[in-house]
Nucleic acid binder design. Structure first.
Lengths: 236, 236
DNA sequence: GGCATCATTCGATGCCGCCCGAAACTTCGA
DNA sequence: TCGAAGTTTCGGGCGGCATCGAATGATGCC
């Protein structure tokens, strides 16, 4: 198999409508069973099984067996990054083309959602903006830097910054990087710090997942603490 | 059209073998005619025209008419980045799978090639290594920083660093960032600085393009100047 | 103006792969 | 050991798409 053929295999695996729904459902980092993914995608279990087998064989998903359930998840950060980059291309406005449909489900996604392991949507962008305005981080299109005041702030709200440094974490993932938001077209916060803020938000009850989707709902406590602790102004 | 359908469209456009060859042939940033792309991909002109029409309609390529020729190029940096990210996923070693075939053509690519607008392959990685070892740049997996000595070095070899800063350049592209090399699995240099070094290498005659491919040949002058100016050790 | 070249459109053909019904396999609980 | 639930395999139907031959625009050169 040539490298070109392998490229085509990967891209076409990600280019089938049913598989797209499955991949996007897994983009929050959770592991879902074949039945759950079949229901999400609106196909029968045997069809879903076929697709999942191909995605696993192609290296896009990894599978973990627990009893009679088989949990599927995004195989690697590289795969998640690839999906993000395809979303970027797919979300650009196209001339001579009617705009993309935006249902009520999309509205919830635009408001606040998870993007692989960090926060996105208006919430994610507002959070990044507030940190930049407060002088806590410095964001350029391709890199991010946490300032001393930012480190102090993170420690104050309960994030152990030291344990997030690239040398400590697996894969050498960077502490802080921007990730272009597909709905807002502006950067939000990714990297280990972005993941930690997302995890903290769930732990503290600032956000809750809507159904089984990537969309999240901001709780009253979330509105209060985001404003008081991080100076993030959100309109319900 | 839903955003999921648009995602599937983009990914499947990049997932057809003939189109893959065309996209990869354009990844060095050049603009090629329909006939040239047809010859590269090994299909008839009418088949190529069909594919190119779809790629343009899908936003992956842009086209520019000059006389009776129509020049096609990668539509945006976002598209180039998407292709790079798919290459990353496609190039991971897969268990229970025979390794990817590596023909003589691939050998030339592995030695030295362009990656969109910067240098890659063993040359690109060696260049990045030499700059890191010399204390001229600091590369982390997600970010790159040019030191004072690095700026002096760039000015000395004829690169106007000031004009490459993100605020000066279009798109706010970052000055210096790493790009994971698909054949070496180690970072090489991208961003405005990577592009400038690549352009300088062509201007000074250090490298020359092989045929019409992304592969480049290092000239004797290149071996000498890379070693004397940048302390890059290369074995012919 | 006439011809050669580049490029696209149209129609026909053939193949690939998505999908589901039926059935087999695996695992868990009783 | 038996039944229920999760998952996979097998087979056939069906739609979509890549491909090429032939013909039709578009452009430049002589």
């Amino acid at each position: 198999m040539t490298s070109d053929a392998r490229f085509a295999e990967v891209a076409s695996l990600a280019g089938e409508p049913t598989r797209v729904v499955m991949l996007h459902a897994l983009m929050d980092g959770r592991a879902l069973t074949a039945s759950e993914l079949a229901r999400v995608a609106g196909v029968t279990p045997q069809t879903a099984s076929d697709h999942l087998g191909k995605l696993v064989a192609g290296g896009l998903l990894s599978v973990q067996q627990q009893g009679r359930h088989r949990y599927h998840r995004i195989a690697s950060a590289a795969v998640a990054h690839m999906i993000e980059s395809i979303v970027q291309v797919a979300s650009v406005a196209m001339p001579m083309r009617r705009t993309l449909a935006t249902g009520p489900k999309d509205d919830a996604l635009r408001r606040a959602r998870t993007c692989y392991d960090h926060l996105a949507g208006r919430l994610g962008v507002a959070l990044a903006d507030a940190l930049v305005v407060g002088g806590h981080i410095d964001l350029t299109p391709d890199a991010g830097l946490l300032s001393n005041s930012g480190m102090a702030l993170m420690v104050r709200i309960g994030i152990d910054v030291a344990s997030l440094s690239p040398s400590m974490s697996k894969r050498g993932r960077v502490l802080c990087r921007p990730c272009l938001d597909w709905s807002e077209r502006r950067p939000h916060l990714a990297g280990n710090l972005g993941a930690a803020l997302c995890a903290l938000s769930f732990d503290k009850g600032w956000i809750r997942r809507i159904d089984g989707t990537r969309a999240v709902r901001i709780t009253p406590a979330g509105y209060r603490d985001y404003r008081e602790l991080l100076d993030v102004r959100l309109v319900p």
